[in-house]
Amino acid sequence: MPLDTSTYSLALLRIDGRRWNDLRRLHAQIHTQDAADGSSYLEMGHTKVMCVVTGPAEPQAGQKKGTVGSAQATGQKEGASIVVNVVVAGFSSVDRKRRGRNDRRIQEMEITIQKALAANLHTHLFPHSTITVSLHVLSQDGSLLAALINATTLAVIDAGIPMTDYITACTAGSTSSYAAGDDAADPLLDLNTQEEQELPYLTVGTLGDSDKVAVLVCESRVQVSRLEGMLVVGVDGCKQVRRLLDGIVKQKGRKMIKEGAVRRSDMMAVSLDD
């Protein structure tokens, strides 16, 4: 479905009425499910994902040998291994499309998330155990990998697994396609499906408030001169996402203290009133 992006230069507004550096509505919940160790639900625009984290737990029989369709941590004898499963629901896209577990795209997302987690979780604290991350895609409208990474971060925080900092991700694109030689191309933040299909884009994930890039995936052809601008916008978007996620985590923490699930300690640095 080709998208007519020529109108962008007229009003500098995108198809859904956003400016170039606007994020879509981000809504998230932590601890959506009681049976799991950690869980989260995240919406970025119309992209909706759920994440369930189980573990750190003793590896199940058969999992050691490498389950089909899941990304396995390799070369981690001492630390916990991380298994990521992504399930894309058949009803998630506009036209119903069933994707098997062995779909290449899904496998690549699994491996990307698994590697990002393996580098930033303190897995050495849980030797000989497994952390299983199951992700469910309920509805997709662009920035899928970014939404999955953000949901995973929230669920891992809910599970209480120590990590160096938040891993937050978002996408960045460019308003003109690869072949077009216009120099006035604007970078775009947080693309939806229509834009993703038409324009070059990349997914970038950063660690906390720093500029450290933890994940960078680009599958489309981009002119090198535009890459820097896209990356800057993407990293800036990640910081915005981090602030939003941090707000959600703190809100949940406040609620837990108010409900008495966690004891208020003298060491508490954050004031509850703000």
């Binding site: 499910q33 009681d34 049976a35 799991a36 119309h46 909706k48 759920m50 629901a89 058949g90 009803f91 998630s92 506009v94 469910h136 309920l138 509805s139």
Partner: peptide, 21 residues
């Protein structure tokens, strides 16, 4: 899920949860 013709979510007390679209 507004993108489907019909959808439902059920959580049992033991924490198991299912979604149908």
């Amino acid at each position: 899920l507004p993108g489907t013709n019909g959808s439902a979510r059920v959580c049992l007390a033991d924490g198991t949860e299912a979604i149908v679209g």
